[in-house]
Computed example of a mutant assay.
Amino acid sequence: MSEFIVREATFDDLDVILNLSDFNEGLDYLHEYFDFFQYCSNVSSYVCETRNQIVGFVVCHRVDNGETILTRASRVRPEFQGKGVYRQMLMEIEEVQKEKGTARRYAVVKTRPPAMTQFQTYTSVARKEAHVFEIAEKQHVETSISDIKRIDGSLQKLEGIPALYLSEPYSNYLFPEGRIIVDLVPMRLIESNLKLAQGGNTVFVSDVQISSNEYKKLNTFDTPQVKGILTASSVYCTRDFAEMVLILDVFGSDLSTFNNHVAFHLKRLRESTPQQVHFKIYTSKGCDCSVIDYTLAQFGIKKLTEGRRLEDCVKLEVYERDLP
C-alpha cells in the first residue's frame, strides 16, 4: 500500500498549497485561479498527503468532451520531490477519469524543452512561438496607450470564440496547430470546448474578416483569404502583488492591426497596482516575429533577452499520450 493518499482539494487547503514550493519563479497564478478551479465543472483539484501532511497538488482539466485530460499548476514540497508524489497523483487522476468512461488521452503543455527520457511515450501535437517581455515602468506604457487617439473601430470585444471560427476558411487560418490554446489550455476544434475557453478572466478581441471580394470564393473551389487576428489576454497578480503577469494568445498571422490589439489588452493593466509586468505572447505559425518586437518597442516594452524566466518560456508545445 502506498504511503501517499490522494484526495480532492478543498478551500481549506489553499494556504498550505500556496506554500508548498516556489512555483514558476514566483509567477504563481494559483491564488487567483483557485476559486475558478474549484467551481468549474470540467476542472478538479487534488492534493497528495502523507501522515496528514499535504505534500503535493495538481489541477486536472477535462476537455474534448472529456476525452482529454490535462494537468497544470502542479507542485510538490521540496523534500518530497523525486519520491513519487506527482506520479501517485497522476495515477489517481487517470484512474478516476477512466472510471467515468470518456477519457482516452493525457495531455501536457511545456514552455521549455522537457527531459525526453520522461516523454518517450508522448507525441508532440501542437506548437506555438513564445515571446517574453518585461514592463518595468507601467506609467510609460500608459502614456504610450493614451497617445493612440482612437483604437480601430473594427476591433470587437467577444464573449468567447465564435463557433464560426471552427469552420473553414477561418479554422485553418486561426488554428493551424489544430488546437485552440488559451491560457495554456489546449483544446481540439470542437464546439463544446468553446465555453471552456471563456473561463477565468480571459478577454477576447477580434477583427477577423473576409473581404467582400473574397466572399465570392466561398462558392468556388478557391479558398478566400482571411484578414485580421483574434487575440485573448489573461491577467493575474503574483501573490505578494509585486508583479503582474499578462498572457496574450494570438491567433492568425495578419499582424497589420497588432498594435491596436496590444493597446486594447494593455489597458487592463490600468486597474492593477504592480509597476512590474511580465508579458508573455504566444503566436501562431506564420507570424512575423519582427512585427511583435517592433510593436512592443513602440509601447516602451523591452524584450527579455536573458535570465531564468526567459529559459522557462522558450516555446509552447503540447504533448499527448494515450491512456492505457
Results as ranks from 00 to 15, higher is better:
F4C: 08
F4W: 14
E8I: 00
L14A: 08
L14Y: 06
D15H: 04
L18Y: 05
L20Y: 13
D22K: 15
F23V: 11
L27Y: 15
D35G: 15
D35L: 13
F37D: 09
T50E: 14
Q53D: 09
V55G: 11
V55N: 10
V55H: 07
V63S: 12
V63D: 06
V63E: 08
D64M: 11
G66M: 05
F80Q: 09
G82T: 12
K83D: 00
K83P: 00
V85I: 12
Y86K: 03
E94L: 11
E95K: 10
V109T: 15
K110L: 11
T111K: 13
P113L: 04
V125Y: 07
A136Q: 05
H140M: 12
V141H: 02
K149A: 15
I151N: 02
L155H: 12
Q156S: 12
L158H: 05
E159I: 11
I161W: 01
Y165F: 15
S167L: 02
S167G: 01
P169L: 13
S171P: 14
L174C: 03
L174H: 05
D183A: 15
N193Y: 03
N193G: 09
K195Y: 12
L196Q: 13
L196K: 08
A197D: 05
Q198M: 12
T202K: 10
T202N: 06
F204A: 08
S206F: 08
K217Q: 14
T231I: 06
S234L: 02
V235D: 03
A242F: 02
E243A: 08
L246W: 01
D254K: 13
H261A: 14
Q275V: 02
H278S: 06
K280H: 12
K280T: 10
T283D: 00
D293V: 14
L296R: 04
Q298T: 07
G300N: 00
L304M: 08
V314H: 04
K315L: 08
Y319M: 06
R321F: 01
L323C: 10
